[in-house]
Amino acid sequence: MAEIVPQIIVSGLLIGGVYALVSVGLSLLFGVVDIVNFAHGEFLMLGMYTTYWIWVFSGVDPLITLIISIPVMFLTGALLMKYLFKRVIDASPLTQIFLTVGLQILLQNVALMAFSANYRTIQVVYNEIVWNIGGVTIQISRLIAFFIAILLSIILWLFLTRTDMGKAMKASQLDRETAKLMGINTDKIFMIAAGISAAITGAAGTAISTFFYVFPTVGVSFGLMAYITVILGGLGNLKGAFVGGLLIGVAEAFGVQYVGADSGLLLAFIIFIVLLTIKPQGLFSKGVA
């Protein structure tokens, strides 16, 4: 039994990297704009469909579609902020929840109407290639997805810490009113934050599109995972969200191995519910939300 543990951890970490990126996207929007977007998983779904249709019509490698899907998703996020989310920034949680839940249901079902409920797949040559490193098998498409996720996370981290725009974003995360007083254009910051949130989540969708079915409700479990991860990591805490994403990937892999192929998420969710019941302020919070 013990010899498969490294395999489980590696598989879990590989998909966990993608979960981490999705969670960071949600956490960024929550941290900077103070809004919980229940339609977050749908960004991933939209990213997947964007990649799928470009692949169908042009046949280019799904990874190349990032050149188009990242700007498209960025624009989607920014426009949603400008025309929808902005209306409810100062509203009650209830209003925010139902606005974004409405958006979630709308997006899912517009996708269902437009693309049907069919499970679609993208075929690439490296789909079936598997590496064997010291008894641990690694599917190359999952490894690529992991690296895309890590790469985008690093770029985001550099952006937030090294650029003026990123610093302004962090400033509005810490104290929106003071940031405004310092001459930071918070409206613009919010649009960019929503754009980045949508773009990296859409990119996560592209990353997994080579080994994951594309269908209208694909985002639901990812979105749910991201909310739980973000709460677990401490709200608005990007590092916490990242680590939480990796952990939930590993928890899922253990669930698949020891509980059943259909029960990976079940175990992960139950673990997280129990953890949060014991420690409601999140695992990594140090008093700063």
Binding site: T95, V101, G102, I105, L107, Q108, V110, L112, M113
Partner: peptide
Amino acid sequence: VLPGANYALYGLILIVAIIVIP
């Protein structure tokens, strides 16, 4: 013809209702 149209409508009603008639 369009499976999901009723749910899409639910979503739309929800968005409009929460903004227009809170």
